[in-house]
């Protein structure tokens, strides 16, 4: 954990001390363009997505403001506006746009935003669960049995319908669990933001921050596990392929 803090401190310093212009070697004073030769500058590879979009490291986000900033920066960096520029400028525009697009879509979605914050603050996004979380163990076991029965059901329509309705009940139950998780997650968001607002410096209130992050990591892992199971159920019932994410 200490190591992460150190690198994140160093990162902030790097961003503060803006480097030289790649083109005219003068010190870059403008935000995205060189003040001397007006060439576009590459966004630092170390730049995090919050900084990229000019946001503090909080989990509650004004999505309208986020979108407005994204559109504004798109108008700054998009390759469309570098068509007649030099090859290096086109490459910078491409790289900056790709970073911006990833940053925006990562922050726009609350779950991905939280996962990204975990990665920034605690090194890794979440653990990949291979077994069900303890408090969901029985429900998931039951669902998996019903799912197996549904899948291996003979062509008999009545039998299939029976399993199907059973699955629907299991599914509704787990959907409810997921909603509970989302409520809990929202609570953790507020908790994080409160601490972060009080102590924005990375080192400050570190133990409290780490506690929230740990709780969040656990919850996100469970949530992903649950969602994959639910997707399997939906896919099995629709006869399509499971749409696994994360």
């Amino acid at each position: 954990m200490d190591q992460t803090q150190n690198t994140s401190n160093k990162r902030t310093e790097l961003q503060m001390a803006r480097s030289m212009c790649w083109h005219c070697q003068s010190e870059v004073t403008g935000e995205y363009y060189c003040g001397q030769c007006v060439k576009v500058q590459p966004l630092s590879k170390e730049m995090d997505y919050f900084t990229c979009l000019g946001l503090p490291r909080l989990l509650a986000i004004d999505t309208a403001a986020l979108e407005a900033k994204y559109y504004e920066l798109s108008r700054t960096f998009h390759p469309d506006f570098f068509q007649s520029k030099t090859e290096p400028e086109q490459q910078i525009s491409l790289g900056n746009s790709a970073l911006l697009n990833t940053a925006y879509h990562m922050l726009k979605d609350p779950v991905q935003r939280a996962e990204y914050l975990l990665k920034l603050e605690a090194g890794s996004a979440k653990d990949i669960r291979n077994s069900p979380p303890a408090d969901l163990f029985e429900e998931i076991l039951e669902l998996q049995e019903d799912l197996e029965a549904f899948r291996s059901a003979s062509g008999d329509a009545k039998e299939t319908d029976q399993y199907r309705s059973k699955l629907l009940v299991d599914r509704a139950q787990l959907e409810q669990r997921r909603q509970d998780m989302d409520t809990k997650l929202a609570g953790l968001f507020t908790k994080w933001d409160t601490i972060q607002n009080r102590a924005p410096q990375p080192d400050a209130l570190r133990p409290q921050k780490d506690d929230v992050l740990k709780e969040m990591r656990e919850l996100l892992s469970n949530r992903t596990y649950l969602r994959n199971i639910l997707n399997d159920v939906v896919a099995a019932m629709e006869g399509g392929h499971a749409d696994r994410r994360h």
Binding site: P79, L94, G95, S97, A98, L99, N101, T102, Y104, H105, R245
Partner: peptide, 10 residues
């Protein structure tokens, strides 16, 4: 890179 990701994307 998932489908429906805004391009450019890397």
């Amino acid at each position: 890179i998932r489908r429906n990701t805004t391009i450019p994307s890397s």
